[in-house]
Amino acid sequence: MILTNAQIVLSNEVINGTLTVENGIISSIDHGSVTLPGALDCQGGFLTPGMIELHTDNMEKHFTPRPGVVWPAIQAFKVHDAQMISAGITTVFDAISIGDVIQGSERLNNLTRMVDALSESRERKLSRADHLLHLRCEVSHKDTLAMFNALLERTPAQLVSVMDHSPGQRQFASLEKYREYYQGKYKLSDVEMDVFVERQTQSSRLYSDTFREQICDTCNRLGIPLASHDDATQAHVDESHHYNMVIAEFPTTAEAAKAAHQKGMGVMMGAPNVVRGGSHSGNIAAHTLASEGVLDILSSDYYPASLLDAAFKIAALESNQYDLPQAVALVSHKPADAVGLHDRGRIQPGCKADLVWSTLTNDHIHIEQVWKNGNRAF
């Protein structure tokens, strides 16, 4: 396959050139265009690496599209996969939650269904993107440690993150924001919300520290990359670094983001945060961290189509240190490198031919085609 007349986004520059693929691998990159028969003219559009998504919970919404509606697992997974590949995401770490802040939630009911669907789709080669397992461990939930150990025995994980969504700290340092979010989400009365806050606070006291330590020890022993979640203080970052965490997911303050970056952790922020211009929880904005030069990775989180859009928006910001290659790195080789995937995320000879052709109209980036291992996937 030959792609020509493209603005090829390399690791440190953008060139107008031609890219050749052989057997699913990038074989050469040359300056200038060619007129060879069969070459695809990219019409001056951008050619970027297929994106690597480390944290998305997009899958679960397809398993329960409405309250009480349980969708067949493989069909639900395939719709999720189609959304990811159409957004230019060619490697997906599906973030599946162990534990929740509410008992009997659909998230808990769908846990094994989602893990099994991911495994079966991978074995039967039903998906267009590469799907890997990211276990999100809610350490304030009483059953999290037991479920984590049971899942690891049946399905290997490629990434594990440790979360604590109890009130008054991390993502919800503001108790007012906590009440606003969960009271609205679960339609609780003021009295019910008071009980909810007390129950979550008590659960965190009982389980969080012990479960965090044991889960991290297991991952370090098995060589599974670890991510922290919603670090807010220097103490949180010091603890994360102590447990050998390589990624800082969604730090909530500039203090925590800078500390994590200085310790060599990949600071991850949400692409929706970039597109919307700020955090829905009232925490630090991703573009603020970009202006400080401490933004390392972007994640589409709950909205797949936000990822490429956010990279181009970061590159367009006046008050930041990221040109287009550096902004594209936030969604390609930086997340890949953080979890040890060195065969993808870059446009260079020898790497997987996971590619995205897109065109920019005004401030909107539009995906034309996507290739996985040199094969057209969208």
Score class of each variant (00 low, 15 high):
L222D: 11
E255K: 12
N320E: 08
L289R: 01
S119A: 14
A150Q: 14
V92M: 00
P72Y: 01
N375M: 10
T20W: 00
N375D: 10
Y178C: 03
A338C: 02
V356G: 09
V160H: 02
T361N: 13
S300P: 05
A6M: 05
D143Y: 08
G282L: 00
N273Q: 02
R170L: 06
L40E: 14
T201P: 07
C216Y: 05
K313C: 09
A377W: 01
D337W: 09
A95W: 01
S11A: 15
W371Y: 12
A6G: 10
Q202L: 14
V328H: 08
V195Q: 12
V275T: 09
N375A: 12
L47G: 01
E176N: 10
A305W: 08
G345V: 05
A248F: 08
V246R: 15
K61H: 10
S203K: 13
L341G: 01
M51N: 09
V246M: 12
C216Q: 06
T218H: 11
L226G: 05
D194V: 00
I52A: 04
L10Y: 09
Q183I: 01
C42H: 00
H31V: 11
Y207R: 08
G88C: 05
S358D: 01
P167T: 05
S11C: 12
E153R: 13
A95E: 02
I25E: 06
F93W: 08
H280M: 07
A117I: 03
G68L: 00
K125H: 14
H241N: 13
G24N: 08
Q200Y: 07
Y243T: 07
A259G: 07
H229N: 06
K185D: 03
Q103C: 09
R170I: 00
S127I: 00
I247W: 07
G38Y: 04
T233Y: 10
E292R: 12
C219M: 07
E120T: 13
G374Q: 03
Q183W: 03
E176Q: 13
G104N: 12
F93I: 01
I347C: 04
S203P: 06
S204I: 06
V139N: 10
K187F: 11
I98V: 15
L47P: 05
N149R: 15
K258R: 12
V69N: 04
A146G: 08
D217N: 14
A173I: 10
I2G: 08
H55E: 04
N16G: 11
M265W: 03
A235Y: 08
T252D: 07
L222N: 08
S140E: 09
N220H: 07
S240R: 02
R136G: 03
G44P: 02
E106R: 10
G24W: 06
M1G: 09
D301F: 04
A150Y: 06
A305D: 13
T64P: 06
Y303L: 13
T155L: 07
H31N: 14
C42G: 02
T64E: 15
G340C: 05
L108Y: 07
M84P: 02
